[in-house]
Design a protein around this nucleic acid. Sequence first.
DNA 1: GAAGGCAAGTGGTCTATACAATATACCAAC
DNA 2: GTTGGTATATTGTATAGACCACTTGCCTTC
Lengths: 240, 240
Amino acid sequence: MPRYHQLKEILRERIRSGEWKPGDLIPSERELSETYRISRMTARQAITDLVNEGVFYREQGRGTFVSRNKITQQLIKLTGFTEDISARGQHPSTQVLSAEMLPADEFTAERLRITPGELIFCLQRLRLADGEPLAIEFSHLSFKGCERLLQENLEQQSLYGVLESKFGLPLMEAEQELEAGLAGAEEAALLKIAPGASVLFTRRTTYTDRNQPIEYAKSVYCGAKYIFYTHLKREQLFSS
Amino acid sequence: MPRYHQLKEILRERIRSGEWKPGDLIPSERELSETYRISRMTARQAITDLVNEGVFYREQGRGTFVSRNKITQQLIKLTGFTEDISARGQHPSTQVLSAEMLPADEFTAERLRITPGELIFCLQRLRLADGEPLAIEFSHLSFKGCERLLQENLEQQSLYGVLESKFGLPLMEAEQELEAGLAGAEEAALLKIAPGASVLFTRRTTYTDRNQPIEYAKSVYCGAKYIFYTHLKREQLFSS
DNA sequence: GAAGGCAAGTGGTCTATACAATATACCAAC
DNA sequence: GTTGGTATATTGTATAGACCACTTGCCTTC
C-alpha cells in the first residue's frame, strides 16, 4: 500500500476516533512528514486527496483544518422509490395499476430518443409508505427486450433492481424536474386526499451509464407527505 | 497565474474548441511537460485537477483520456435568483420588503451553526420575473461583518454577487429541500395569486468553499410559474 | 503461426529542495 | 496606544530526478 494512502487512512482514523473534531487544526505538512518519515510532498498528496474529498480544508499561512461537515461526500443519490422510502425509515409497498405495451406518444418518444408510435412498456403504479398512499408513478420504458418486463412481478420487486439484475441495465443518472400543483379528482381518489390538495409533480428521464435514456417517468407525490432533498454545487468547469 | 493553472486552461480550451473529443487520448505527462517547458510534476498537477473535476480519466500504462460522459460535467448549478431567471430568458427584478439585524431563533441558529440570539442579517425580498411576482425569499445571513449588508442596495444587485465581490465570500454549495404546499393569505397577496393556489416551498442552507454555512433561506415560489430542475447521480463511492 | 520475452512508453509513487505568498505574534518606534 | 516592521510559522508553486507497475507492440524463438 502506497505511503500517501497509508497516511490518508491514519488521518481518517484520527477523525473517526474523535481525536480531531470539525474545525480543528491538524499538524502541518512538514510536521507530518517528519513524524511519519516521509517527504513533505508525499504528506501533501495525502492531504490534497482528503481536501478533494471534503474532509479537510486549507488556509494559506494558517494551516489545514478538519471540515465542518461532509456535504461534499454526500453525493446526490439516484434511487428508486423502494430505496428512497427505506432510507427514510418507512416501509415501502406498491400496487400495480396497469402494465402494458403501448405506442409512444410524440413527447415521450422525444425524451426516450425513439420514433413516435414505437411500442414501449408502460407501467402505472401506486406507491405506499407504511401502507399510506404517497405517490402515483407512470413509467415509460424503452429498450431491446423491454416486453419481457410484462412477465415480472413488479409489486414485490424494485423496478430498478430488476433492470439491473435481470436485464443488465444499471441506471446511473437522471434529469428531473419538479413542479408544485393541485390534486385533480382522479389523483386525489387514488392518493386518498382531497381534490385541490397540494401535490408535487415530477418528470424524470433516467439514463444508463452509456447516456442512453431508458425510462421516462411522471409522478404525482402527495405534497403533505413528501419532501424532496437536493444538493447544489457551483458550476466550476468552463470558468472563463 | 500559476503555470499548472495556465495549463489547465489550455487543456480545457482544447476540449472546448473540439480538438479533443470524448474518449480521445491526450498527450502524455512527459510530452506536455516538454511542450510547455514545465516539469512533469507540474503538468501532472494540472491533469490531476482536471481528473478530479471529471474532465479526464487516466489508465495506467495506456494514457489519459477525455471523459465520455458530458452529463457528469454538467454539475448542478448553484445560482441565485438573478442568474436563474436570466438563464430562462426572463428579466429578473427585486423588491426589498425588509432588511434588518435580528436575533437568530433556535432553528435558524442551528442551521447557521451559531448560538441562538446572535444578531444576523435578515432580508425579505419579493422576486419578480418580467414584472410578475414569482417568489418571496426570506434570507438569514451570518458572517463577520454581515451588518455591512444593511448599506448595500439589494434591489439592483444580486445578493450572491455582493457577497462574492465585496465580502470575498463565494458561495459554493447548498443543501436544499423542496415541498409542495398551498398559498396562505399573506403569501397569496404578495404573489398576487389566489389563497390556496399551489406553491413550492424551498429551504436552503448555502455554504462557502470552506464548508461554512453563510445563508439559510426560505422561499415560497408561485407553483404555476416555476419548475425546478435537478440532476441525479448514482452514488458510487465508499469504495474502501 | 503461436508463444514468450523484450523494450519502450505510460501513469503511479516518492524524494529532496527551493522560493513565493500569506497569516500571526511580537516588538520597537512614534 | 497605535503603527509598522520583522521573524517565523503556514500552505502554494515548481523543479529534477528516481524507480515501480502496467500496457502495448515488436521481435525472437519454437
